[in-house]
Design a protein around this nucleic acid. Structure first.
Lengths: 111, 111
DNA sequence: CAAATAGTCAAGCAACTACTTGACTGTTGC
DNA sequence: GCAACAGTCAAGTAGTTGCTTGACTATTTG
């Protein structure tokens, strides 16, 4: 599912749709309005976002209302956060090691 | 650059490479080891990651050493965090509104 | 009821992606 | 110096993506 989430977010039109939906739910036509492409194309983008779990939608009458699914955003975000914090922690450890002149096992790093 | 970052992360092989690099820098051959594909293919994946700003690499002698670029990870993460927190804040406001029976302009929500 | 609205479906197409193969360029170790 | 090693380059290919068009299906609304 991360595959699909990141893939979905790689397209600027789809990120635009997500950004718009962060302001609140919208119909497909409303989502399509800012773009020059056809409605059918926007529908396809919404389907991609929905398959990726970034968005949910429900059709009432003839209008389909779309809204963000924050859980989808969160899972992508968490993957990134987990990796990044791990790297940065290691970099900090390295920096501390370089700052420390005496290589003693008992840690006591004062500037 | 977000386009390229998300696009890069959409591929499981490339996410695998990033995960491996979170443990520390590695040569291209080391990165390729866990995969069944050719070395040339892995080189191409590394190039995609580098173009996306998720990774940096330097060639010394005949070996190219690759490491994560946490700034790249962070910018993708920040895009997600900004959108998600905005949506969740709005959902919380809505929940509070629904919990409140009297629709008065002066807010005073007690459970 | 008829026309406009909101969206859906399927086919087609150009561009891009994720590979492979094979030939080639430097580098290191004996 | 020469073989093995680490990687690079370029071309080719099957499959995917981001559109479009045109025909079609509901659902309002006057």
């Amino acid at each position: 599912m991360l595959d699909q989430a990141f893939q979905a977010l790689a397209d600027p039109t789809r990120r635009g749709v997500v950004e718009r939906l962060c302001e609140g739910p919208a119909s497909v036509s409303e989502l399509a309005a800012p773009f020059t492409m056809t409605l059918a194309a926007v529908v396809q983008h919404v389907q991609v976002l929905e398959a990726a779990g970034l968005v949910r939608s429900e059709k009432i009458g003839r209008v389909r209302t779309v809204q963000v699914d924050s859980a989808g955003l969160r899972s992508a975000e968490e993957w990134l956060a987990a990796r990044r914090t791990r790297v940065e922690r290691d970099l900090d450890r390295l920096a501390a090691l370089l700052a420390e002149p005496a290589p003693e096992p008992s840690a006591n790093a004062e500037e």
